[in-house]
Write a protein that binds this DNA or RNA. Structure first.
Length: 281
DNA sequence: AATATCGACAACCGCAATAAT
DNA sequence: TATTATTGCGGTTGTCGATAT
C-alpha cells in the first residue's frame, strides 16, 4: 500500500475534514488557543474537537486567524521590500515574511506567483532569468521608489496617495533613461535613474491629463515587451552602445548611493535592507 | 442567461529539520 | 543512539468570485 492510500485511509478512519474552514471551526480554534495557547498542534487538533489535522490547524491560525496577521492589498512599500528581499534570498518566503510585519509567507508567495511571475510571462522570459531580474532591478524597483516618493509629496496635483496600493506593479513601468559613456568598460559608465518629474509625468505627448497608471501602461509596456522579447539590450542609449552585465554591476556600484540618497525618506519606516542582509550573515 | 476562463487566495502535500522519548 | 512525533517550509493544487464570450 502506498503512502497516499495509507494517508487517505487514516483520514477516513478519523473522519477528518478538508477544504475551506467554517466559521464554527474558526471559533473553536480561536477559543482553544485563547485558553491553551498556540503550539502542540497535533494535540490541539485531537483535544479541541476539530476534525482537522494539526498541520491544518496550524496553517489556519498562522495564515488567517492570528490577531496580528495583516491582510489586504500589498502596499507599494511592501512590494518594494519583497522585490528587494527576493532578489537577495530567492524563494525563502518565510525569511522574507519576517521583514514584512503581519504578512505571512503564504501571502508573499502568492503575491510573487500571481503578480510577479505573471509579468515574467508577459515579458516572455523566465522569472529566474537575468533579463527579468534586471528588469525588476533597474525598472520596476526604481519605479516603485518613485511612486512611493510621489505619494509622500503633499498637495501634489499628481499625488498618488489616493491610490497608494496597487494590485500590480508592472503597470507602473517606465523606461529608465540611461546615459552611457562606454569607454571600454571603465568606470565612466553612468546612469540616470528615471527622473520622476519626467517619468512620472501625468501628461502625455498631447498634453492631455491622464492617470499615472494609464499613461504608462500600453505604450511603455509594449515598448519594453518588444525590446526585451526581441532580445535587444533595453538599457542602451546610443543605438550601438550596449551595456553588458558587467556594466550593470559597475553601474550599480556607482549609483547605489545616489539612489539611496534620493530615496532616503522612502525608507523612514522600513527596515534597512543592507542591515537585514548583514544581520543574516 | 449560461458557460468558459482567469486571477487571487486559501489550503494541502511532501519533505527535511528538530525535539522528544 | 535510534526511533518516533512534531513543526516549519516551499511547491502545488483547489476553490471561488469576477469577467469575458
Amino acid at each position: 500500500m502506498d503512502k497516499i492510500q495509507e494517508h487517505n485511509i487514516d483520514e477516513e478512519i478519523m473522519d477528518l475534514r478538508r477544504g475551506p474552514w467554517t466559521v464554527e471551526e474558526d471559533f473553536i480554534l480561536i477559543n482553544y488557543i485563547a485558553h491553551h495557547g498556540e503550539g502542540r498542534w497535533n494535540s490541539l487538533a485531537r483535544c479541541s474537537g476539530l476534525k482537522r489535522t494539526g498541520k491544518s490547524c496550524r496553517l489556519r491560525w498562522l495564515n488567517y486567524l492570528r490577531p496580528d496577521v495583516r491582510r489586504g492589498n500589498i502596499t507599494l512599500e511592501e512590494q518594494l521590500l519583497i522585490l528587494q528581499l527576493h532578489s537577495h534570498w530567492g524563494n525563502r518566503w518565510s525569511k522574507i515574511a519576517e521583514h514584512l510585519s503581519g504578512r505571512t509567507d503564504n501571502e508573499i508567495k502568492n503575491y510573487w506567483r500571481t503578480r510577479v511571475q505573471k509579468h515574467a510571462k508577459r515579458l516572455k522570459c523566465d522569472v529566474n532569468s537575468k533579463q527579468f531580474k534586471d528588469t525588476l532591478r533597474y525598472i520596476w524597483i526604481p519605479r516603485l521608489v518613485e511612486r512611493i516618493q510621489a505619494a509622500k509629496i503633499p498637495n501634489n496635483s499628481h499625488n498618488e496617495a489616493q491610490q497608494p496600493v496597487l494590485g500590480t506593479g508592472i503597470n507602473e513601468l517606465v523606461p529608465i533613461q540611461l546615459t552611457h559613456n562606454n569607454n571600454n568598460n571603465n568606470a565612466s559608465t553612468g546612469v540616470t535613474l528615471a527622473n520622476s518629474s519626467v517619468a512620472a509625468s501625468s501628461e502625455n505627448s498631447i498634453g492631455t491629463q491622464v492617470s499615472p497608471l494609464s499613461n504608462l501602461s500600453d505604450c511603455c509596456y509594449d515598448c519594453i515587451v518588444n525590446q526585451i522579447s526581441s532580445n535587444q539590450d533595453y538599457y542602451q542609449v546610443n543605438q550601438c552602445d550596449q551595456l553588458s552585465y558587467e556594466d550593470f554591476q559597475a553601474m550599480d556600484q556607482q549609483n547605489i548611493q545616489l539612489w539611496m540618497d534620493s530615496t532616503e525618506d522612502v525608507f523612514d519606516n522600513l527596515c534597512n535592507i543592507e542591515d537585514i542582509w548583514s544581520l543574516e550573515q
